[in-house]
């Protein structure tokens, strides 16, 4: 039986991971509670949660070279953690990922983790190719959907999500993936996505900063600014240093006509290299470059 299916024993920890309850994934589960066949998957999920929490050193430290040699899953985790730790200067990690993809391409962990590394390193084609080997894994589907969306291929993302819907019906990841697509489609899809995010974010058992941010984002798109502020406030209360929450706070401040400097300062303090900040710097330069074409005269 598929250990991730509704009756399998991994379903809870996997759901918690999907819902972005990373701390809970790390704290509330111990590998010894699971049957021996599931020990490895649990460990992988926990390592991934640790990475999501930024504890890269712990993950890298916990996996020895011999572990990595023996188990491709662990090797993939280590590569993943190394890459995420320093995404800008980790060419070796990418090479390692390529090696793993080559030799262990049918391993799900390798697909997911190396796929993420590729996607982040700008090798989307390679990521998609690797992920396409998955055998009905919804995690892989979700990742594929995201990569398509990042490439602005909403059509392909939608196709992927729809096909997942046909075999996994109402699974959480399918709902999420559809919602991500919906956020690009707009119109009624905004509202549908909002329902999915809100359900996750508002139920005490499944709430997390990730879901709350998602809810806030959907509300921004629906033009419900005040509600978005509430949700975002809740997210920041839960995780004051959540970079995505801060990035969206910045957006919301601008929309509401408030001074966004405070939010920007906080974001800089948390994650200096956040995409938003980098993008803003780039855009400012682009602006200045564009102004150079004009020669205003100030004195007659």
């Amino acid at each position: 039986m598929d250990p991730f299916s509704a009756e399998g024993e991994l379903v809870n920890i996997h759901t918690a991971f999907t819902q972005g309850q990373y701390q809970a994934v790390v704290n509330d589960y111990t590998t010894s509670d699971f049957s021996s066949t599931n020990t490895l998957p649990v460990q992988i999920i926990q390592y991934r949660a640790q990475c999501a929490l930024g504890q890269y050193d712990e993950v890298i430290g916990a996996i020895s070279d011999s572990d990595a040699r023996r188990t491709p899953d662990l090797a993939a985790v280590r590569t993943y953690a190394r890459y995420l730790q320093r995404p800008r200067e980790e060419a070796p990690a990418v090479q390692e990922a390529e090696r793993l993809a080559e030799s262990e391409g049918d391993n799900l962990s390798v697909q997911l983790l190396c796929g993420t590394v590729f996607a982040r390193a700008g090798k989307e084609e390679q990521a998609l190719q690797l992920l396409s080997q998955h055998q009905g894994s919804l995690d892989a589907v979700a990742l594929i959907v995201q990569i398509h969306l990042a490439q602005n291929r909403t059509d392909l993302a939608l196709k992927e999500a729809k096909s997942a819907r046909s075999f996994a019906q109402d699974a959480l990841l399918v709902n999420l993936a559809e919602s991500w697509v919906g956020m690009r489609q707009g119109g009624e899809q905004y509202q549908k996505a909002f329902y999915v995010f809100e359900e996750l974010a508002q139920a005490p058992g499944s709430t997390s900063a990730v879901s709350l941010v998602a809810q806030a984002v959907s509300e921004i798109h629906l033009g419900r600014i005040e509600e978005a502020e509430t949700a975002l406030g809740a997210a920041l209360e839960l995780e004051p240093d959540n970079a995505n929450a801060l990035a969206n706070r910045l957006v919301l401040d601008v929309i509401a006509g408030r001074d966004a400097a405070e939010a920007r300062r906080k974001l800089e303090a948390v994650d200096k290299e956040h995409e938003v900040l980098a993008d803003m710097v780039a855009k400012r330069e682009a602006f200045r470059a564009a102004t150079a074409k004009y020669n205003p005269k100030f004195e007659p």
Partner: peptide, 13 residues
């Protein structure tokens, strides 16, 4: 532009 967190480990959408 808003930033929607999606898969763990990936930049927001």
């Amino acid at each position: 532009r808003t930033f929607l967190p999606a898969n763990a480990g990936m930049p927001p959408l």
